[in-house]
Design a protein around this nucleic acid. Sequence first.
DNA 1: CTGTTAGCGCGTTCAA
DNA 2: TTGAACGCGCTAACAG
Lengths: 328, 328
Amino acid sequence: MVTIKDIAQMANVSRSTVSRVLNNSGYVSEDARERVEKVIEETGYVPSEYAKSLRTKKTKVIGVILPTIQTETPSRIVTGLGKELEKHGYQILLTNTNLDKDKELEYLDLLKMRQVDGIILIATNTEPKLIKKIKQVDIPVVIVGQESEEAMCVSYDDYHAARELTSFLISKGHVKIAFIGVNETDHAVGYLRKKGFFDEMESRLLPVEKDWIQQGIFDIDSGHASMERIITDSQHQPTATIAVTDRLAIGAMSYLKKQGIQIPEAMAIAGIGASEMSQYIDPPLTTIDYQNEKAGTEAAKQILARIYSQKIQEKIILDYRLIIRNSV
Amino acid sequence: MVTIKDIAQMANVSRSTVSRVLNNSGYVSEDARERVEKVIEETGYVPSEYAKSLRTKKTKVIGVILPTIQTETPSRIVTGLGKELEKHGYQILLTNTNLDKDKELEYLDLLKMRQVDGIILIATNTEPKLIKKIKQVDIPVVIVGQESEEAMCVSYDDYHAARELTSFLISKGHVKIAFIGVNETDHAVGYLRKKGFFDEMESRLLPVEKDWIQQGIFDIDSGHASMERIITDSQHQPTATIAVTDRLAIGAMSYLKKQGIQIPEAMAIAGIGASEMSQYIDPPLTTIDYQNEKAGTEAAKQILARIYSQKIQEKIILDYRLIIRNSV
DNA sequence: CTGTTAGCGCGTTCAA
DNA sequence: TTGAACGCGCTAACAG
């Protein structure tokens, strides 16, 4: 391995001089600079970021913790993060919990050990022990996708999005609306979206039957199963269904099609997330676009601002957009 | 920041002793060990991986270069990589080219600078300058998804997969078969799958009209556009179409549906990749499963074996599986 | 069993 | 304009 020392010897200067041309700092004669650059060119020398980090205490690495990389939301966020971080010479150290909550805590420690300059946590919950750990690691952390009063965060307006979606269905004449949600420990997706739905229904004085409310997990099959329960268990058949993710909605649609239930005539359906498939499925799915990639770039900007200790806004709530398609 | 030195002082031992208990190496008295462990516990000290790496020349980080994180194939591979690497205490440094080929070269350099122990390249081409760069960086590199004689690789049997898929359509009675491919600089997806198709057609003495062969890019819309050209331009209408990816196939299906062309009666269709959507689209798509996650774990095993300089198999070609569904 | 010593590759004073 | 010297936090001989 070729080091700064080798370059110095070959160019007949001291290591300091090499360091100066490398970092463009201090004075260095044109003559010396040229010799050094020539040698660097010839040897293909690349300075060790590790050694540099040891001195500068900056690694230029941002740790990212995500629940899974196999769904569109986190993928888009990471894409956004990557684009923004790259501009500033930062790299991403990726950790994947595969939906194991304990690993969120574990990786927080691990990333600290790796001396990352900051951490982006694509969160699925905001439980106290997680918040506590975040404070404890003593590294800038930005939470994406969940709102929190106690940490920096970039999140979506889940409550109003769900509410507006519900309102839209009502405006289309639906009064019996079913709802497929997820566990409420996921505050954003599980709790807020559900609350938005219920509040809107209540404000319109529309009753909601118990069997209309189903809970799935984050996959297509559970959307299928949820819709099956809605259809078979309900006293009064609803005429529309809101699912908190597009995947759940797509699963629900696949059950309806299998049963020969017409969409949207016999059952309207809407999702949230603007997945790519939502526009190609038949019929195209009404959904809500959250601009996940933008959430990623925003989170990146936040963490960088924090690292360079600029004044920052602690809490960002992004806008959403209702996409109306033929499933309703 | 608390360092090994602080721990040593507080525990009244030398830094070496602390290092010994940290790494469980050499002898250390029970008494000393307990004191050290107690202090570590109290201070919440975590050793700096950076400083360690500087000495050991091992970073326990694997660089990953991928073309995009927004499609299922790379996501699954990364999931597989992550699972295997984690078992061995390795982390992933992620770089995303967003399909910009120049960045593949750039990131190879960057990862070298970061002193990663190995690099996994999820490749979209095997151009000479890429291979040259790989040799030049002098770090173990494993290519995933493309076959190469000159570098370690984990790839799929694209040729036989395409051939078998073609053979299957023929066995279903189709003789006029269209093909939606991609640019052949992508040797695996563009060249080999196409060759498999043509060779099988030829061996069955089935002619292929020029307009049956279309080229798209890696997205759904271009599958739609390709099918439109097939339908509108062809002299003789084909009765089946093979698309080299599921996304292309799904795009093609969306065009057919829009035109009211029945699948599979008027046009059978098959894809490759076993995307999640392939089983939920209507009708469910016949496709080929490549076990991408396994490709990831295999690649991880390869790179680790190489790092620990065990004897390794340079080239791994994974098996595939034909999934027959109603689109044919 | 333990401490001393000597770097790993680099950036940064401080003199010269 | 340059180089010597020091230290970042850690591991690895080598003595003791």
